[in-house]
Design a protein around this nucleic acid. Sequence first.
DNA 1: CTATTTTATCGTAATATTGCAATATAAGAA
DNA 2: TTCTTATATTGCAATATTACGATAAAATAG
Lengths: 110, 110
Amino acid sequence: MGVTKTERYKPQQLELSSMLKALGHPARVAIVEYLLKADDCICGDIVNELPLAQPTVSQHLRELKTAGIIRGNIEGTAICYCINKDAIDALNEYFRVLTAQIHKKTTNCC
Amino acid sequence: MGVTKTERYKPQQLELSSMLKALGHPARVAIVEYLLKADDCICGDIVNELPLAQPTVSQHLRELKTAGIIRGNIEGTAICYCINKDAIDALNEYFRVLTAQIHKKTTNCC
DNA sequence: CTATTTTATCGTAATATTGCAATATAAGAA
DNA sequence: TTCTTATATTGCAATATTACGATAAAATAG
């Protein structure tokens, strides 16, 4: 069906998987990594950095934005995109706790 | 087209996005969280824990396994699934570094 | 051997994603 | 105003994902 029954899961799981899904494409990982490395965040040249056509990049940017991973500010003619610190912090915290809990476990058969 | 041109990205970005994509579905987040909380990892009852039919769960498990997020060991009639510590460690490390780098940045317009 | 149990695979329908050409929109420059 | 530049939206084709019923496969129990 291609349709996820969202009402079957915890809000926390839906929120998390939505952010991870947004990062689940190499182009979108590349966008985040480029935004990180760019000095200022006037980012009119994201398109030139990626091996994709402009509409495709625009679409990926929208997905990252919808998931809350990045933010966009209008700066005259261009648009300034940058990473949403809070979202990355939340992901970092999730994996930090997950890792800690895994390492606490004694029974691990695999 | 629905087809990602993988040769256009860095191996690191492909590897990472593949793992994140695997976790980009609430059912698969739920599976990982259940594996974490289960005492031993003889996990024949994952199906009962999820609001999905058995073939669907089996499919999700395979995707997690293919991405390296979980491992599966045959235990007689049942199969023992558990989290692949190394994969979660790698994700944790990625977000740890990403977070650190973001907080180091002074120029953040959004 | 024949159940039974557990998990995987097949087949299929519904929907989502990816990518791009064409076009639209928005804002400043001339 | 018209031109240019930057980004978004539309429309579409190719492919992928999600979900499940039916069935297969693999191991043990009787």
